[in-house]
């Protein structure tokens, strides 16, 4: 794959956002410890090891926790979820195409990059089984 460092100027967050705009979900891995890191950083948390590799996530994950935020009726509630990516990173996102009756902790999900008001946004949809 292209090395992200050469395709975007700036720090790790800028590199990550540039990759997302090109349809790729990047994670970092510390070469020495193997720890997977998100949000992207200059160095491994707790160790300070700056020897990090970028790699592309497979996009599969599992819902770790979720909440439904009420809105003024009749607007339905929307969900906010914590998703554990299969590679080991956890992030906040949402799961589209579900209802309070169907979404559960433990649900397998697949990443999707959508356009949200002109900016790319990482969301998830249920993984068909």
């Amino acid at each position: 794959m292209m090395t992200p460092e050469t395709t975007a100027a700036g720090g790790p967050e800028a590199i990550w956002r540039h990759a997302l705009s090109q349809g790729r979900i990047l994670l970092q891995r510390a070469r020495a410890s193997g720890a997977v890191i998100f949000p992207p950083r200059l160095a491994e948390p707790g160790r300070g090891d700056a020897d990090l590799d970028w790699f592309e996530a497979c996009g599969l994950g599992t819902v770790y926790s979720l909440t439904w935020v009420a809105q003024k009726p009749p607007t339905p509630p929307y969900n906010v979820a914590l998703v554990d990516l299969d590679e080991g990173a956890r992030l906040m996102s949402r799961v589209d195409g579900v209802t309070p009756d169907t979404l559960r902790i433990g649900q397998r999900v697949r990443a999707r990059i959508i356009d949200a008001d002109g900016a790319p946004l990482l969301v998830f949809v249920p993984l068909e089984t």
């Binding site: 926790s65 909440t67 935020v69 929307y78 906010v80 906040m92 949402r94 902790i105 900016a119």
Partner: peptide, 22 residues
């Protein structure tokens, strides 16, 4: 923060809700 804000969690309530749900 900039990673979480696009998903519109109520600050700070939704974070506590995520802990409660788990």
């Amino acid at each position: 923060n900039s990673w979480d804000a696009p998903y519109r969690p109520l600050f700070p309530m939704s974070s506590y809700a995520l802990a409660a749900a788990r």
